[in-house]
């Protein structure tokens, strides 16, 4: 299952609107500009997504996940290399804290940051498609390349994979957003994109 160019472009724009809103929320928390962009969306198989993440030099990850259910279900996940996650928390919480103090806050702070970004992406989809999702609260986990939740399970799943670029206080930090969808959910998502495009007279 794959996206045509216009579907991919539409999804990219919708997620960019989402991360734009998330950036505005984060910027309100830090009272400073926060830039977030997700340049492009890829649709890959679970194993390929794992490979992209494993391609990173560091293999300790900080992940935040939420399960969304609605017209289609998605397990959404924000993944940062552990050192980047700590850096984000440092930049968000402020420079007055030692690294030890920061790590004590890291899990919950990352949970909240992930919650803001993932909710924003999904509510952007919901707004554009005029649909509604329910969601679990965010869950933070540390993981290495061997126990990353994405590697779990044997059900065939597709992954929407976005690279996120975050800039806080002139520091660029990279991570990924993943949406794991079952094959039926993926085709429901594609239907919604097509319906949206045709409602706008574009397809």
């Amino acid at each position: 299952m794959s996206l045509n160019e216009l579907q991919r472009d539409a999804l990219g724009e919708i997620f960019n609107i989402g991360v734009g809103r998330a950036a505005a929320s984060l910027s309100q928390i830090v009272s400073d500009e926060v830039l977030l962009s997700a340049p492009e969306v890829m649709v890959v198989h679970r194993e390929q997504a794992a490979k992209v993440l494993l391609g990173a030099e560091l293999n300790q990850f900080s992940t935040v996940s939420q399960s969304f259910s609605g017209p289609f279900d998605a397990q959404a996940m924000l993944v940062f290399p552990e050192s980047n996650a700590l850096e984000i928390v440092r930049l968000m919480v402020g420079p007055h804290m030692s690294i030890e103090e920061l790590s004590e806050f890291e899990q919950e702070a990352m949970c909240e940051i992930g919650n803001i970004i993932l909710n924003a992406c999904m509510s952007s989809l919901a707004d554009i498609f005029h649909i509604r999702f329910e969601s679990t609260l965010p869950l933070h986990r540390f993981g290495d390349t061997y126990n990353l939740p994405i590697l779990d399970g044997d059900e065939e799943q597709m992954v929407l994979l976005l690279q996120v670029d975050m800039i806080i206080s002139q520091q660029r930090i990279q991570g990924h957003i993943l949406f794991l969808l079952s094959v039926p959910s993926m085709s429901a998502l594609l239907d919604h994109i097509d319906r949206y495009l045709s409602s706008q007279g574009l397809a």
């Binding site: 968000m92 919950e108 909240e112 965010p138």
Partner: peptide, 9 residues
């Protein structure tokens, strides 16, 4: 959608 506000932030 649910939200969490962390003590750190």
């Amino acid at each position: 959608l649910p939200s969490l506000l962390s003590p750190a932030l």
